[in-house]
Design a binder for these strands. Structure first.
Length: 284
DNA sequence: AATGATCCCAACCGCCCAGGG
DNA sequence: TCCCTGGGCGGTTGGGATCAT
């Protein structure tokens, strides 16, 4: 017999690919009622034609109530860069320093954006294995599209595209600074500050969006029509989490949501909406 | 407007680890 | 000590979105 684990599910009988809204709701509904004591058996019990691992991934990376949605803030990116330098590709460890962010998300942001910045910086001879130039007052950064470097004192440091993506709808400079203060960097002689021209605070010039106060819609969000209410589905789910204590029953990984609680929607309305939706989908 | 290139991210895959029998 | 299992992690990829020409 092959040593190691058996296949977690029958590959031929499980659905793959993007999750539908109904599947999401089934999963949410089930976990809210029963938690997730056993991921392998969960799909069957919840009536999902999915692999247990897939359910776990979907929940942790997307459906979990305390997942912070939206783009990464400059401070978060800075934290990632620093932690990656000291920890390497330990995405889950890095994620543990960023409440509401998942390892998958951080991995993506690193592979698609941050890594590229440093790679190009090295190619251009501007970075020396992440060590700062002796005179770190002159700072380089990289524009993702053009592959060019500019001094931070230049205007229009980064492209509009990148700037917009650095904005988070939940961005709070103050709160993120407090997050930063909790980060422990233990690498030897690590000083990445020059990348961000950072002494104690991230260089906001590097990310003009944060001063511009531009707010973007959450991307990739499942859109569920809420008649004329403007109610956000995820805020709805937040509200439906009865209490921090009960939430922890649902999700052992919960580290406390820092998402703003949606104001102005009664729990009663939320429950009604959920019941309606479950009935419509035949979940009840 | 059409087409190709690039970016981005959700999801999959396979391996590792810890715990239990 | 060995084997099995579930959970978790990190690497990779498919394909939609966006940008450039």
């Amino acid at each position: 017999m092959r040593k190691g684990r058996a296949a977690c599910c029958d590959k031929g009988k499980v659905k793959k690919g993007p999750w539908s809204c109904e599947e999401d709701l089934r999963l949410i509904s089930f976990i809210q009622k029963h938690g997730h004591p056993n991921w392998r058996s969960l799909p069957k019990q919840a009536g999902l034609l999915r692999c247990g691992k897939s359910c776990r991934l979907r929940w942790i990376n997307y459906l979990r109530p305390d997942v912070k949605r939206g783009n990464f803030t400059p401070e978060e990116e800075y934290t990632i860069v620093k932690l990656h330098h000291s920890l390497g590709n330990k995405w889950s460890k890095i994620a543990s320093h960023l409440p509401g962010r998942t390892d998958n998300e951080i991995k993506n942001i690193w592979n698609t954006r941050l890594k590229k910045r440093f790679k190009n910086a090295e190619l251009d001879g501007c970075a020396n294995s992440f060590s700062p130039p002796s005179s770190s007052t002159s700072v380089v950064s990289h524009t993702a599209n053009e592959g060019e470097f500019k001094n931070v004192n230049d205007d229009n440091m980064i492209t509009e595209k990148e700037a917009s993506k650095s904005c988070s709808p939940t961005s709070s400079y103050a709160s993120n600074l407090s997050n930063l203060s909790q980060v422990e960097i233990s690498g030897p002689n690590v000083d990445m500050d020059w990348i961000f021209q950072l002494n104690e605070e991230p260089n906001l010039e590097y990310f003009p969006c944060i001063t511009a106060g531009k707010v973007h819609d959450n991307e990739g969000m499942i859109e569920i029509p809420l008649e004329g209410s403007g109610i956000d589905f995820w805020d709805m789910l937040d509200i439906m989490s009865p209490s921090p204590n009960s939430e922890s029953k649902l999700d052992n990984h919960s580290e406390g949501s820092d998402q703003p609680v949606c104001q102005g929607i009664s729990e009663f309305e939320c429950q009604n909406w959920m019941r309606y939706f479950e009935n419509e989908l035949g979940l009840k």
